[in-house]
Nucleic acid binder design. Structure first.
Lengths: 225, 225, 225, 225
DNA sequence: GATGAATGAGGATTCATTCAT
DNA sequence: CATGAATGAATCCTCATTCAT
């Protein structure tokens, strides 16, 4: 009979002293370790012992908090997602300024809050493991992709409504915003990690360039006449 | 010591008689089966026996052609790549017409020849397994990504040279072409395979939309006269 | 994915409860079991599972202590040898009495401490597997055969020096002492184990007879004039 | 249903031309190859494919002549033994000269006809595999060891009867003759094959030395008049 | 007869999971 | 709670044996 599972806020700043072994932080450390390793090696190729070792506990302890490797995996995905989207949505609810600025801000913020953090690994993880965990894939689709799409569509629609963007199929245009985001997440955790430093892609510049091209393509060009 | 088959019905005539002999065809069938399964489940989660079964042979036969599961994996990647890029390059060497048409053609052809075929799985495979097979990742980077980049940059540069496109950093712009391509490959083999049919993304339309947006963003505007 | 034990009686309390924990004792028990089986059946024909079963543990446990079957084999040989020779050498350093008595004692003691114990199996093992494990053979040659030879030569030389033995090539004479020892070790673990009890060779008597014949052959016979 | 097995004289000098594939020589070549490999690596560690390859035929062909690996093994042992002992016995039936000379001749001839040839490998093979093949061990015991013992005992008894040797337990004395012979066979195919050339034991000299020591030990001393 | 492709039982090894301490 | 020794199902791989050609 597995003990009750943790449930805690994802952005917890860990205020405690670092010296003593703090029990309540365990699940978080395990999730961090698991995320890193699952992203790096995939679910099947990651050994629970490695996860435990990286979290500084023994194998047995891991099973105290997670009933199985699979449950650990699900927790990793759920945990990294919970609540993020909602907070984000609210932020854009009250955005002031023109829509191109809004889109630029949206892309920039995505990079800063997701792309540049370990949360981006979840994207790679889902791409790699979706077929092996269809329920998780559905969950991810519902909790992350759909809301993200809705948010993007809303922004795009706002631009159209305000006469800033030409009319468009916002559904497909939203995918156009999503594509570079996902590409960057994937790249960073796959080939990007295997390429010599000199040839690296600068993500901030890539995001910026990509955003400008897209904006340039979508804007009505009143100013041009 | 000798394996006692059908212990209880020793004179059974074994109706299947599957022992066909097709040495030349085998490696190809195995590679196909392996590609499909590696793409679907990942390297570690795929059992060699499944690969063999899907290719219609026994476990032992697989090892007749590939020294190990890892060698099979490498062969899958190498085999799906060899020569493709070169032929493609040559095709564009002699392209006639304006550069936007060239880019549209390039994207369309990529979808038809790679994206829509099982070859697209290699992309997902590399994204998922690059960290576990760094040598393969380097090989893929060198043999596929680099040449693809070079080709795209050449096309973009042609547009700039001919006054069709505004000046740009062709390196980053090439990534902008790459992103939707990779996104589509990934999507198709991951979340896309887990989503109910109604919500599917139409790849041809996505490619077309994306291409137009990009072109719109890059073109110098003749109407701006 | 998790192994579903007792599918039909899930609440079975499993009365055996063998999960004892004796980390220190395990390697020794495994080495004993491995020695016995390797001697009896040879390295290749012995299954690790048999070794584990004879040591009263499961297959997995064996690999907790020995990285591979081969490492187990090496450990068996090394462990059975370490230190034996040195202690023996020292014993003869301080021997008092005439050399024929010394030789008789040497042979008798070899039988008691090696020949009659499971350590004699190592000799058979090395004879059988030397070609498959050249490094181990070299180790055995250096750590056992050479020192044994040196000890025997020293004893023989003492006899010659004290006028008890006729001058001789001590190197070859040492092999004459070695031959019956090895013969006995081999015999005991091979044909001797397959022969009906009535025809058994009495090892003590054989050693004694052989020693007397050798001594008789080597002694100068002052008393005979 | 296995085809009838071969049966041919062991010392066949192979008179045919070497060029054409001579069918009737096949079993012999396979037995030679099998003997060499079984002696070197042991039964379990030798692969039938290696045996076939060394004999210059395919794996399938081997099974045309021998129903199984085990049958091949038995044939190797039987074949190398058949008839040898009888011919030898007859030779000593008519020996003229004193018994010490007879023993010296016996040992020398053993080395030349067995010890120095590949037949000596059988001894090592039996020592290594006796426990795994008890029927073969019994066969070997009956066909080789017993007759050898009888022959040696007869020679020793002749010496005692003629007043050349002191009275003795001929049974144990016969083992004293056997021990160096078996030692040499074993040594040659095991540790002896793993030792640098400089440290080699000269078999002829070893046999001679050993014989003289034994004779010296057994002879009644005429000088004791 | 000879071949060698195909087979699949068997064995080494790994690793998620359990549980006594 | 935490540990890590123990377990054994699962998996890769080998190789004796079969059999269509």
């Amino acid at each position: 009979m597995p003990p009750a599972r943790h449930e805690f806020s994802p952005a917890l700043p860990e205020p405690q002293a670092k010296r003593e072994r703090r029990k309540e932080a365990r699940p978080g450390e395990l999730l961090d370790a698991a995320l890193a390793l699952f992203v790096e090696k995939g679910f099947a190729a990651t050994r629970v012992e490695e996860v435990a070792a990286r979290a500084g506990v023994s194998k047995g302890t891991l099973f105290l908090y997670f009933a199985s490797k699979e449950e650990l995996f699900k927790a990793v995905v759920r945990e990294s997602i919970a609540g993020r989207i909602k907070a984000w949505n609210e932020e854009f609810e009250v955005f002031e300024g023109d829509t191109p600025a809004m889109l630029r801000y949206c892309m920039k913020v995505w990079w800063e809050r997701v792309g540049a953090t370990k949360a981006s690994g979840i994207t790679k993880l889902m791409m790699s493991e979706a077929r092996n965990f269809p329920e998780l894939a559905a969950f991810y689709q519902q909790e992350v992709v759909q809301p993200g799409q809705v948010l993007l569509r809303r922004i795009l629609q706002r631009g159209v409504d305000r006469g800033e963007f030409a009319p468009m199929d916002t559904n497909y245009a939203a995918y156009s915003m999503l594509a570079p985001i996902m590409f960057l997440s994937l790249w960073k955790h796959s080939l990007g990690a295997c390429v010599p430093d000199g040839q690296q892609l600068d993500p901030v510049k890539f995001i910026a360039t990509q955003t400008e091209i897209l904006l340039h393509g979508m804007c009505v060009r009143q100013e041009k006449k």
